[in-house]
Design a protein around this nucleic acid. Structure first.
Lengths: 148, 148
DNA sequence: CGGAAAAGCGTGTCCGACGCACGCTAAAGT
DNA sequence: ACTTTAGCGTGCGTCGGACACGCTTTTCCG
């Protein structure tokens, strides 16, 4: 083998993927944030946080789900008060999905919990390593093998 | 903010997760490897490659699936000749799931394709960066925030 | 040593999620 | 003005996942 780096990274990524999709992790990150926030609805919520107000169809393209699936999940989130539907002022057919303050809070809390968890595990690292890792990971993701 | 590293890494990981679960990626990596290998059955196959011969229940714990779900997916893989069932010599109730040569080939091919893809994207990196990234990623995964 | 309890497996069955198809309303095109 | 297209919600068919049951074998204990 001339260069084992590819295999090393592939193995680590596989492990990372498996760990991060373990059921327990999501439950920990969203604990106490309401029954409506689960593995299914959270991607819709956080996708909406990324895109800003948009239609169910656009959000579906963003998160890789069918339009109708987004609608159904949005129903639950709306009932829980985490998002609301607004009429698009420019198009009277369209309905915009908009995060409520509560919904933004859920996303922010979840993200901060994850970030804190990551920082905890990096606490024992040399500062230079932590910075280097953050930088290299960012580059890897942006122009990486999953066709950016 | 005293240290933005946690948020930076969290955001990059989120992006990585979304990209890597995009439907197209798995299709590319397993192209031409048979109809039986899809997003559902591959985790069983690769899990079995990690554990070696084991029972459906043990494999279920490994990959985070119910015992019966593993059985059903193993049925498809067995029909395709990628794994076989063997009687456990030490326990006549137990059935061991064992990869066939074809099954090992599928796992190996998929892994090599992924590794090659990763190496391609790293080709333009300084060699020191690539080595550092592989090392740091490994440490991050091993003793990282997802309760190693 | 023998019977009860437990472990292992496969399958029948229910439940939930997903996506297609339909019908409706509104916008755009001709 | 009429047709075509875009957007949305909802009723259904389909599929995957987990629980519950029955069977066999092993283990435990009296």
């Amino acid at each position: 083998m001339t260069n084992p780096t590819g295999h090393e990274i592939a193995e680590a990524l596989g492990l990372l993927l498996r760990r991060s999709t373990r059921a327990g992790l999501h439950a920990q990150l969203t604990e106490g944030l309401g029954e409506a926030v689960d593995e299914l609805t959270y991607p819709v919520l956080s996708g909406l946080a990324r895109t800003g107000p948009c239609s169910a169809a656009d959000l579906g393209r963003e998160v890789g789900l069918d339009r109708t699936t987004v609608t159904r999940r949005a129903d639950r989130l709306e009932e829980a008060g985490l998002l609301r539907r607004e009429a698009d002022p420019g198009d009277r057919r369209a309905t915009l999905l908009v995060l409520t303050d509560a919904g933004q809070g859920v996303v922010r809390t979840t993200r901060e919990r994850l970030a804190a968890r990551i920082e905890d595990s990096l606490a024992s690292w040399p500062a230079a390593d932590a910075r280097a890792f953050a930088r290299l990971l960012r580059v890897f993701v942006d122009e990486g093998p999953f066709h950016a």
